[in-house]
Amino acid sequence: MSYSNIGKTVRLTRILRDGRAVVFAFDHGFEHGPGDFTSETIDPRGVLKKIVDAGVDAVMLTAGLAHVTRDSWLGRTSLIVKITGKTNLRPEDQKLLQSIIGTVEEAVSLGADAVAATVYWGSQYEDAMLSQWVSIKEEAERYGYPCLQLAYPRGPSIKNMYDVEVVKYGVRAAIEVGADLIKTYYTGSRETFREVVKAASGVPVLMSGGAPRKNFIDFLKDVEDVMKAGAQGVVVGRNVFMHENPALAIKAVMKIVHEGLTAEEAYKTMQ
């Protein structure tokens, strides 16, 4: 085993501390704009402090946001630096393209444990994002850094990006290009997501939290289903930081992922 492979194993262990992980994604200010936040959550440091205090396994941030909020997470949880992204300000016909917004070297400088990049499988810009991914993966390998791929099937020919066959294809494509961790869509049932996990062939799969659910218990049921399907965890964002009590929300998710509680049991701990 090369030194870089040892480094990757060490960093993956920090994120998947018991083989499972709850990752808090907080790149929404870049991807969606300030409209996702209230006057109480517009300052990212306050939100991150609550989440980190609750014991989350890792946070996924852009390099700039990681620098601004360093007092909230430094030395207290794992950092994953997202080094591709897009804004909602760009023209509609280019919204299925991610741009490079950071580097692996910046992630190393920040003391991160992994890097993350998105590939919109099926997009008309798939080739450009694949080129980005290959370059990121090559540099990350030199530093012994795991690469989390946000494997999102989106494109003009995809009618339903949550269809199990479509999601399975994206996951299979992600492992074919060397993803060490995969974040992907929930397919709507425990049975279909079990197929997604199987398609990953042992590469850890994390469910994308997605848009906020009207009733938080429904989101917890999704988390329970993917864990029972064999997933290694979840990547949560809006369903947590848009909740009236983000700390209780993330703790409930963690009880399902790490302690095996049912959604109902975890929800009761919030009362």
Rank of each mutant, 00 (worst) to 15 (best):
Y162I: 08
K82I: 00
G7H: 03
Q98F: 02
G33F: 04
G210F: 08
I51R: 00
L110S: 02
E40H: 09
E265K: 13
R172S: 15
G144W: 03
E265G: 09
I80A: 04
K251D: 01
H67N: 12
E139Y: 00
D225Y: 08
I175D: 08
G178C: 09
Q124F: 00
V236S: 04
L206M: 11
L96F: 13
A116Q: 03
A247G: 01
T77G: 05
A252L: 09
A21P: 02
I217F: 13
D222H: 05
G260I: 10
K49H: 12
G64Q: 02
G122V: 12
L16C: 03
L220E: 09
D18M: 02
S39D: 14
R154Q: 14
V56D: 06
P34Q: 05
E265P: 09
L97V: 09
K214N: 13
G233N: 04
V240Y: 02
Y162V: 12
E105N: 07
E165R: 15
V81T: 07
G230F: 11
T13A: 15
V56P: 02
V68L: 13
V134W: 12
K214Q: 14
R238S: 07
L110A: 02
R17K: 15
K198V: 15
S72Y: 06
T13D: 15
R154L: 14
V253S: 03
H258I: 05
L150Q: 07
A114C: 05
R190F: 08
V166K: 06
I256Q: 06
P34I: 12
I42Y: 07
A174K: 07
E106M: 10
I15E: 01
P34A: 09
P153N: 09
F26H: 09
K82Q: 14
D218F: 08
Y152H: 11
A266F: 12
R20Y: 07
P91E: 13
A112H: 03
A128R: 14
A117Y: 00
Q271V: 14
K8D: 03
D163W: 07
K8Q: 09
F219G: 05
V68P: 00
V68I: 14
D163S: 13
V164P: 06
R142P: 00
L130P: 01
N239V: 04
K86G: 05
P204L: 07
A199V: 12
Y145E: 01
L61V: 06
S123A: 09
Q94H: 13
L248V: 00
Y162Q: 12
A252S: 13
L206R: 02
T103V: 06
A116H: 01
L97P: 05
S109H: 11
G122C: 12
G230Y: 10
G188N: 11
V177D: 08
D57A: 10
